[in-house]
């Protein structure tokens, strides 16, 4: 059984009245959405001149992310495919304008006028074919192409997303690049399974200083003590091509921890004076099931 909502039903079915209400009545979800939106706005790197900008919220849902935009003083237009989610946004009296629309059909917006776009946990939905007429590649192309056109030169788009696997991440990124965007993936807290969050940061226009991918959080070892690669600033952003992390080659234990990780952890516990069993060839091996 998968817990990924994308695999259960199309978004306009999954996010029905019941789910939409659950969404905003759960303080856990509200908190997470606010945190993700705050970080996405930060990565948008709008000029710090106090002038309110006009932003898009793609997959705006119940307007939790939009509220973060409003709190930061900006105007926004939200697009979502689920009427139930938008109805909750109406009830919450969010400040932005709401549009019922499907990003996979392309955004119908005049060119070059929008100052930036954010999207929280929505774009991975495009990778599914929910109807016989859906071709994910065409939908990704329509979406990124239209987004590129409606943004102003140098404007950014930041997508927080949960790709299902590397292939999906690469697919999404490749269509963004094909549309003309520059940028990459920022992974905050890459070593923490709970806090790990992934953002696609795109800039409209040719690569320049402003298109350099921003730095990720939690890569400096301060919050994840089992991190080796601290120090070098260049290394703080984990980029898209996850090839540097040979997942398959490493032996994973049940919880997905590698032998190297376990050895390091044990060493650390030892240095704290804890009693730790000696290392052996069995260390970090998966236990056989007993009957």
């Amino acid at each position: 059984m998968s817990s990924r909502p994308e695999l259960q039903a199309p978004p306009e079915i999954f996010y029905d009245d019941v789910e939409a209400r659950k969404y905003t009545s759960s303080s856990r979800i509200v908190g997470i959405q606010a945190e993700l939106s705050e970080r996405a706005l930060e990565l948008l790197a709008l000029p710090d001149d106090g002038i309110p900008r006009l932003l898009l919220d793609i997959g705006c849902g119940s307007g939790l992310s939009g509220e973060t935009i409003s709190e930061n003083g900006h105007q926004w237009i939200g697009l979502d495919i689920s009427r139930s989610m938008l109805d909750v946004a109406l009830e919450r009296e969010t400040d932005g304008d709401l549009i019922l629309g499907d990003m996979g059909q392309g955004l119908g917006l005049r060119p070059g006028l929008i100052d930036g776009a954010i999207s929280i946990s929505a774009v991975q939905w495009l990778c599914n074919a929910d109807k016989s007429c859906h071709e994910p590649r065409l939908r990704l192309k329509a979406f990124f192409g239209s987004l590129y056109r409606c943004l102003g030169r140098g404007a950014r788009a930041v997508f927080q997303l949960y790709p299902e696997n590397n292939a999906q991440r690469e697919l999404i990124l490749s269509f963004a690049m094909r549309a003309g965007f520059a940028g990459g993936v920022v992974i905050d807290y890459p070593h923490s399974s709970k806090k790990r969050k992934e953002y696609l940061v795109l800039t409209c226009g040719p690569p320049s200083l402003s298109t350099a991918t921003p730095r990720a959080k939690g890569e400096d070892g301060s919050s994840c003590s089992d991190d080796e690669s601290s120090g070098d600033e260049e290394n703080q952003t984990v980029c898209i091509s996850d090839r540097h992390r040979p997942r398959k080659k490493q032996k994973l234990t049940k919880k997905g921890k590698t032998r190297a990780w376990v050895l390091k952890k044990k060493e650390k516990m030892r240095s704290k004076g804890n009693v730790v069993p000696p290392d052996s060839k069995y260390t970090a091996r998966k236990r056989k099931a007993h009957f």
Binding site: L54, Q75, I77, D97, L98, I99, Q105, G106, L107, G108, L109, R110, L113, I114, S146, C150
Partner: peptide, 19 residues
């Protein structure tokens, strides 16, 4: 919907040149 948004929106129908 405010006129701000109306001023940004255009018809996205296939084949339409000036929406």
């Amino acid at each position: 919907m405010r006129l701000l948004t109306h001023n940004m929106l255009s018809s996205n129908i296939k084949g339409v040149i000036n929406g």
